[in-house]
Design a protein around this nucleic acid. Structure first.
Length: 246
DNA sequence: ATGGGCACCTGGCTGC
DNA sequence: TGCAGCCAGGTGCCCA
């Protein structure tokens, strides 16, 4: 392993590279947006933050700006982490990664059976916060970022401003359905490339073409033609159609 | 327990 | 052309 920049969200310790030498990869998994790579003696926990990407590159490809670390594989190929904003992270644990403080209290995966209408309905009771913000709370559901929270609410025809506790059972059902559909569809076509997101092969995702409201402020709603609105909730932009969403 | 606000950082775009 | 200001795909932490 080669580390060129240790100042990620949490600094990469000086002995990190030494620890990883000659270890075998046993398993690659994911929990929420954390990528888990299990080696002989522990597990790498990595996160891409907002601007991070991982690429699998041929041996010897010279690093560019913001290429913060490489892991060299037996084949000579390089697993390279690139992250201009340095919001990403790389951590190491020698115990069960799911017990790591950052992962231990995470809510169910949105595409799992545990995330169903009953679960969401219960999770929204007594919560005054706007439903959009609740959807981005990793103690309620993980994996929903700013894009897909807006999109899922649009498809469920629910106002992002609606207080979570005012969700009806039917709305909870519609919302769970929309979340699963939006995420499954986005994954199928490689995610959303707005500026520079690319997958491990450097290929962009095409979900941006399927966005109904995100980054479409002032443009006509794809369903009813009235202008898409942009508001700020919890310091994040939310996009929605006040005519379609109630 | 809950909610709100701040922090971390760089780059790209807009408007003067 | 330069520069200030604003905005951005996330999420942990601190405070009330």
């Amino acid at each position: 392993m080669v580390v060129r920049e240790r100042r990620l969200r949490w600094p990469i310790p000086a002995n990190f590279e030494a620890m990883l030498r000659l270890q075998t990869v046993h398993r690659v998994a994911r929990r929420a947006k954390y990528i888990l790579i299990t080696l002989d003696s522990g597990t790498l926990i990595l996160h891409l933050g907002m601007s991070g990407s991982l690429r699998l590159l041929a041996a010897g490809v010279p690093p560019r700006a913001h290429d913060h670390w490489d892991i060299e594989l037996d084949s000579g190929r390089l697993l390279r982490f690139h992250d201009p904003r340095r919001f990403g992270s790389l951590l190491w644990t020698e115990s069960d990664p799911l017990e790591h403080p950052l992962l231990a209290k995470l809510a169910p995966e949105p595409l799992s059976a545990a995330f169903d209408a009953e679960y969401l309905y219960r999770a929204t009771r007594r919560r005054a916060v706007a439903i959009k913000q609740l959807l981005m709370n990793s103690q309620v559901v993980v994996g929903l970022g700013n894009i897909y929270a807006s999109e899922a609410l649009f498809h469920a025809r629910i106002s992002p401003r609606r207080s979570a506790r005012r969700l009806s059972r039917a709305q909870a059902e519609a919302l769970v359905r929309s979340i699963k559909d939006v995420l499954a569809e986005a994954i199928k076509i490689g995610g959303t490339t707005l500026r520079d997101y690319v997958d491990a092969e450097g290929t962009p995702g095409y979900f941006a073409q399927r966005l109904y409201v995100y980054e479409r402020a002032g443009e006509p709603c794809r369903v009813c033609k009235s202008p898409v609105k942009q508001i700020v909730q919890g310091q994040r932009s939310t996009y929605w159609c006040p005519a379609c969403q109630r």
